[in-house]
Amino acid sequence: MVAVFEAHYTHLVRLARHLVDDQADAEDVVMDAFVGLSRRWQHVRRTEDVFFYLRTSVVNGSRSRLRRLKVARERRHTQLDRDAAPADQAAMAHLEHEAVVRALRVLPRRQREVLVLRYYDGASEAEIAEVLRISVGSVKTHASRGLHAVAELLEGST
């Protein structure tokens, strides 16, 4: 259990942060996933199942946390947008990255989850389908629409 924690905690916190936007929320979600895993530890038969379980728990936990904090999150987004508005920051090198991350936040939930799992976690379409319990075809559709939406948002912001 300790080895699993050391191996996956950091990566999962970063993954969760892209799904819930907040570091503290991300850490809570990942902690919940590990607590859940510890309860089922006796039933774990294959070590490769552990990461799948944790990743699925993090995605589901992020989803429910976002749902609970939806109102607060919307207020915070408005504040972030306002903070990012100054024109002098547009020249900064990482602004484009921030714009991408901001664009991700306004995507529909499924599209955001698919893009984060695909481009942050490096999960295959089949793995994403298993985690989100949707078909591979749906994964492709959400990925395509998500990418298209991000491109449009980036174009709109420039």
Partner: peptide, 21 residues
């Protein structure tokens, strides 16, 4: 896709407090 991946990994350099966790 490249931009998306690099944007998502931009913050990876920030440390995560594993000890406290």
């Amino acid at each position: 896709e490249l931009l998306l991946a690099s944007s998502l990994h931009e913050d990876d350099s920030q440390s995560v407090d594993v000890h406290n966790a």
